[in-house]
Design a protein around this nucleic acid. Structure first.
Lengths: 234, 234
DNA sequence: ACAAAAGTGTTGGACATACACCCATGA
DNA sequence: TCATGGGTGTATGTCCAACACTTTTGT
């Protein structure tokens, strides 16, 4: 059997698919690549894995570099490893899918990468296989969000029910019945009502809510069905 | 921003977590590692990524090397990238989780790796972070199987309902009501009843079924709930 | 005839959906 | 006062879980 010395060493990168929500649409944060090949073309934010860091650390570093944000929701997706995916040199890339509060982002200032938010269906063509990464991330977002309460990550700490419903409607590109939506949401016990209203967008105003952090952390596994009581096993 | 030449190149490996089902228990196929470090210690079957292959190809190659099987159900899990996970040299590993028909395997002969099937709770301690990989794979198996009909991959082409129920009971370490189980199963329309009975294990005999391959391929996405009609979006 | 596993139906409760009106307020 | 979006309740049907007895046949 083969040993270490005979093996080829290759480049490993991470790329971040960064989602945000502007109150109406889901958006994607893209940059213009700063070096060859494909310099100045639109791209996901990425970077090479460094000798002394794990992949998760690399993804966090890259994300912070662009957005200034830390502690962001990040999830590793499946590796991309086509031998010719990067024309310069063989590189495998591990995509990370990130959900950020777009308001937090806007407060940061980093123009080094010329980043821009794009609507998913209006984004430019991206370099390499980044378009495939985006498709995978979008699919994963829908999958995961149907089962787990992750979309809160896209909202500010205080948010209203109509905002949240808009978010779900944007993700699934459909319309939800607000009475049923509210009832289900409340039944999770994840929300805490505040005494404050958001008056932008309506005269009556909508109450703000915040997450019950304790329950939220504990309930990342939730909602299912085929194996009876499947949630017990996840 | 950095360029390609300045980056460190590292080793990339795949490791296979191979599950089988013997009619009663879920088992794991392990090997004794053939080279240093940790030579002769128990390990997952793995191998280094080669210059001209993708990760999926590497996993299939490694799996075939050990089992002789092709076309096996394989799924990529999250990469393991701790900087010191391999004491010899930094190596990131992409684990693949495999479901094989243990009967197909038994027909193959490959003693080069001294492979053995182990019960999950009686397996030896494995090298590096392979124990973590196994835990991750087991968790993923439960998660995935609760939502998608993947456990058929562990059974031979002809199987009985009681066999299938045993399998689910083994995976979830619980007992299912056979009436409800059968009804749900039948309602999927995935099974085709054969005119043949398995008489081992009972006097009455249990009918064999096979998968409706067409429907099976089409229904890998199925069963959910929080987003109304979530299955539409997955 | 009996042992051992396979096979089959019904009922009650929970939950999901569908649906329409009143409320609060700013302009 | 009216226009706008926020907020709430009920009735119906579907689906799930709980539950026990009959069938088959080898010994």
């Amino acid at each position: 059997m083969t040993q270490y010395a005979n093996q080829q060493h290759i480049l490993v990168a991470v790329d971040c698919i960064i989602f945000g929500f502007d109150g109406k649409d889901i958006k994607l944060l893209l940059i213009q690549r700063g070096f060859e090949p494909e310099k100045n073309k639109w791209s996901l934010m990425g970077g090479f894995l460094k000798p002394n860091e794990k992949l998760d650390e690399a993804a966090n570093r890259v994300l912070k570099q662009l957005t200034g944000l830390e502690g962001v929701y990040l999830e590793q997706l499946q590796a991309f490893s086509d031998t010719d995916r990067d024309p310069e040199e063989r590189t495998i890339s591990i995509p990370y899918f990130a959900l950020i509060d777009i308001q937090q982002y806007e407060k940061q200032i980093n123009e080094a990468y010329h980043p821009e938010w794009y609507l998913l269906n209006k984004k430019p063509r991206l370099i390499f296989d980044h378009d495939d990464m985006v498709r995978l991330a979008q699919k994963h977002l829908r999958y995961k969000a149907a089962l787990h309460p992750i979309l809160f990550e896209l909202l500010p700490p205080k948010f209203t029910i109509p905002q949240l419903q808009n978010l779900y409607e944007a993700v699934y590109d459909t319309i939800f019945d607000s009475r049923n939506f509210t009832r289900k949401l409340m039944s999770t016990g994840l929300l805490v009502k505040l005494n404050e209203k958001d008056k932008t967008g309506s005269k009556k105003g909508a109450f703000y809510y915040k997450l019950d952090k304790r329950k939220y952390k504990a309930n990342m596994a939730a909602f299912l069905n085929f194996v009876p009581k499947a949630e017990k096993y996840i």
